[in-house]
Computed example of a mutant assay.
Amino acid sequence: MKRLIVDALDFRYGQHILFKSASLEVEAGTMIGLLGPNGSGKTTFFDVICGLKKLNGGEVQHSFSKLLYLSQIIATPPVFRMFDVFNMMMLFCSDTRVTQRHALEKIEKWSPGIAERYCEIWKKKSSLCSYGEKRWFFTLSLLSVNADLVILDEPTAGV
Rank of each mutant, 00 (worst) to 15 (best):
L67G: 00
N56V: 00
P112R: 05
K53L: 15
T99P: 07
E154D: 08
S21R: 13
G132L: 04
L149P: 05
E59S: 11
F92K: 06
E27A: 13
L18S: 07
A115C: 11
R97M: 10
E105Q: 03
R81M: 10
M89C: 03
Q61S: 12
I114D: 04
I114R: 10
A8C: 13
V79G: 10
E105R: 01
L4I: 05
M82D: 07
V60W: 07
E27L: 09
T96N: 10
V85C: 08
D84F: 10
A22Q: 13
H102Q: 11
T96G: 05
F45H: 01
T44G: 10
S94H: 04
N38W: 05
T30L: 03
L4V: 05
L140F: 09
S63E: 06
F80N: 03
K134L: 08
I49V: 13
H102E: 09
T156M: 11
K42Y: 14
L143V: 03
M31L: 12
P112Q: 08
T43M: 14
P37A: 14
T139K: 14
V6Q: 03
P112D: 09
K124M: 13
E59H: 06
S144L: 01
C119Y: 08
V150W: 00
Y131L: 07
A115S: 15
V150I: 15
D84Y: 05
C93K: 10
D148C: 01
R101V: 02
S65E: 13
R12E: 11
S141K: 02
N56P: 00
R135I: 00
I114Q: 08
V26T: 03
E105Y: 01
D148T: 00
I107Q: 00
N146P: 10
Y131A: 06
L140E: 07
I74C: 09
I17P: 01
M31W: 10
K53G: 06
E120A: 12
Q100T: 01
A75Y: 14
K54V: 12
S144N: 02
F46S: 07
L128N: 15
A147K: 02
D47I: 02
R97Q: 12
F64L: 01
W110K: 01
D84Q: 07
F80E: 05
C119G: 08
M90T: 02
F138S: 05
C50L: 09
P77E: 13
F83K: 03
Y131Q: 15
F86Y: 09
K54Y: 11
G14D: 12
T76M: 14
P77C: 11
S141G: 04
S23Y: 08
G29C: 03
P37N: 14
G51M: 04
D10T: 05
M82T: 02
L152E: 04
S111Y: 11
F86A: 05
L9T: 04
L152G: 04
K66R: 14
S127D: 14
A22W: 13
Y69K: 00
I17L: 12
C119D: 14
N146K: 12
S40F: 10
T76V: 14
M88I: 03
K42S: 12
Q61G: 01
S63L: 09
G51N: 09
R101C: 02
T76E: 15
K42E: 14
G158R: 13
L140Y: 08
